[in-house]
Design a protein around this nucleic acid. Structure first.
Lengths: 381, 381
DNA sequence: TACTTTAGTAAAAGCCGTTTATAAACACCG
DNA sequence: CGGTGTTTATAAACGGCTTTTACTAAAGTA
């Protein structure tokens, strides 16, 4: 395997990226500050800032207050110079939003039936493409150029190839969604599994802010997990990491172990949960419901305990839309017995987490590309 | 967090490292070949090879056969120009070996009582230091300069600080073993957990050769696991990843969940295994023993299944010295039911695996240091 | 022996980042 | 209000690294 060497181009690109990332951190910075943070010299920062300004990505702000001498010019990223259109196909209605250069999510809402144009020819894929193009046009006319697409898909996804391996909820199997969208929109496309996207959202803006090793548990219409390892999403050898729903327990029937089925553990848990879900929300107002809740806690406690022993995460996030109060996370935390301390918290982001996460994934590649670090023509690769 | 920028020093160091790694891959290479593999130009490779030669790390070999023109000089690493003394404290008797620049393990055997000088003052630590110095002197006088120490420790280790957090088998808790050895020998020291070291050994030279996502299960006097994630050892938030022995099963007593105890699952498994271990080897010659073996397989199958669902490894290695025939791995493979394919194999390296693994860990830092990439004065950091 | 091919080397050129010097813009102080 | 000191900004010189180019060396081939 050819080991990557460093040529001169790479140096500039790398340093451009360092400056850009630092600006994203500091929001607004003088060149002296950028130089300090990147360990570059001021003249170098000057030329890099000039390059980024030429791209329209950076602009000058108000002069900084003088610190006893000539006041410094401040520079900041132009938030909407580039945007990512993020789509989330996991809910009953698809959602969309835009992530700007600063990583903040603006304008996120569900698609209306009209926008989707249900019943149009082309099936779901055709609908999706039409919707995406509509949204792109809308953003552009609002002055927000869209430079990339990001899609959270409920299923097994291979982000490298841009293929959806299996998404039963959408009726897809081995669909080259990334290439289709790229060809239809002319934009690079990033795909990611929806649970992974939510976990990433929590990592970047939510409960797991800045975490290095996080186990994210998602309850909802299914049971899934995501792993953040060394600060990065872990996808597994087959891109199917986190399929907690296929776990087995002694005595549990070992049926439904094919991808696409809902797994045995998932069915088991959802069955228990159905005892105390009233109108889609956790309701513990009767002793019977409370007993079922305790049973669910106990099953999850064991499963998470066993995972935590092997994974040694610093944080476990439990996200369940039906449990906005975070009862489950609290109950798990109270009963936790383990050789090592683990923080257990409820998910903090609502329906926008997936958009956040997948949008960021695309944004990272977008900014890398801006700096000249070649990222391939993604979806695929 | 200051993003690392690239200055010019880094370029040369990085490229030196690229050339060195390429030479380790190719064993013997012309400068043209090195240039191709590293994407550097021939003149650059020339100067780098000259630098490495000056360090004594690289030497000229036989000229390559002519390919129609002037024959090229070949260059190769001088295997014993630098060596790592690897120590393995996990067995009843400590073992040692040396890993040379090419990564091959030479001369590995157990320490004799005489070498250890049991009964000498200073306890285990003093014995260890004396032994290490004896071995270093022996290697040096044999013409193998020792440039670093690597120690596989049965316990929880923090390689970054060089401290042994907890090693019940050796009676240590929070022992600054790395610093002690470094001060006593004047050499940089690398520590690693023994199971991690074995897993790494399998990854580099054994069953997991080149694996990216591997789950390594070690049975022996205890039950432990190691994870290789994205081609690298994963240590967890507290450096305690892989503590499979603390797993819980429904009905299993939840005692012994403190670090230092042998965990509930570990005790459970070892209890079952004791039914069919004869003279420390798996023996299935009676129906009763076979039934116990099946029971063990079943317990492990569920535990590994649940881990595999979440981790999605490509390979699971089952290593058990008492089972040289690999019966356990085969039985697990036969009964495996899972949504995704996993390869289950027996460990292929014997007692030398830990030396291999931990030696390589030190070797990697050693070569990086040779190239000028500052690695800190390890143990710690 | 003459020609071709591949390897090695030396010099020139190009890129980058840093250092140094100088100019510009402001605060503070008398 | 003008001088002094401080900080920023810019331009020029410098040094490190790699590549390109040209040339020489050493083999094979006809």
């Amino acid at each position: 395997m050819a080991l990557r060497s460093v040529q001169h181009d790479n140096v500039r690109e790398h340093n451009r990226f360092a400056v850009l990332e630092t600006m994203r951190e500091l929001h607004s910075a003088t060149r002296a500050e950028l130089a300090r943070h990147t360990a570059l010299s001021v003249p170098t920062v000057t030329t890099i800032v000039a390059e980024l300004s030429a791209l329209g990505v950076v602009a000058d702000g108000d002069p900084a207050p003088s610190a006893g001498g000539r006041p410094a010019r401040q520079h900041h990223l132009v938030a909407n110079a580039r945007n990512v259109l993020a789509l989330d196909l996991s809910g009953r209605h698809p959602r969309h939003g835009t992530v700007d250069l600063l990583g903040s999510l603006t304008e996120q809402r569900e698609a209306t039936e009209i926008e989707l144009g249900h019943g149009a020819q082309g099936g779901l894929l055709g609908t999706l493409i039409g919707w995406a193009n509509t949204r792109i046009a809308a953003e552009e006319s609002a002055g927000n150029p869209v430079s990339a697409l990001a899609v959270a898909v409920p299923g097994v996804v291979d982000p490298a190839s841009g293929r959806v391996r299996l998404a039963p909820a959408l009726g897809w199997s081995d669909e080259p969604l990334g290439d289709l969208l790229r060809d239809a929109t002319g934009l690079p496309v990033m795909l990611e599994n929806d649970v992974n996207a939510v976990a990433l959202g929590e990592l970047l803006h939510g409960a797991a802010l800045g975490g290095r090793n996080v186990l994210y548990l998602a309850l909802g219409s299914g049971v899934g997990a995501s792993l953040v390892i060394n600060g990065e999403l872990y996808r597994g050898a087959n891109g199917a990491a986190g399929e907690l729903g296929y776990s087995l327990l002694p005595g549990l029937p070992e049926a439904g172990l094919d991808l696409g089925d809902s797994g045995p553990f998932e069915r088991h848990l959802l069955g228990i949960a159905s005892d105390f879900l009233v109108n889609g929300e956790v309701n513990l107002e009767t002793p019977g419901r409370r007993a079922s809740f305790d049973q669910l806690v106990e099953k999850l406690r064991l499963a998470l305990h066993n995972l935590a022993c092997v994974l040694d995460p610093e944080l476990i996030i439990v996200a369940w839309a039906a449990d906005p109060a975070g009862l489950l996370a609290r109950a798990l935390g109270q009963r936790w017995v383990a050789p090592l301390p683990v923080n257990i918290v409820a998910g903090s982001l609502g329906a926008s987490a997936a958009l956040h996460g997948v949008g960021h994934l695309a944004l990272d590649r977008l900014t890398a590309g801006l700096c000249g670090l070649e990222t391939g023509e993604w979806s695929g690769l």
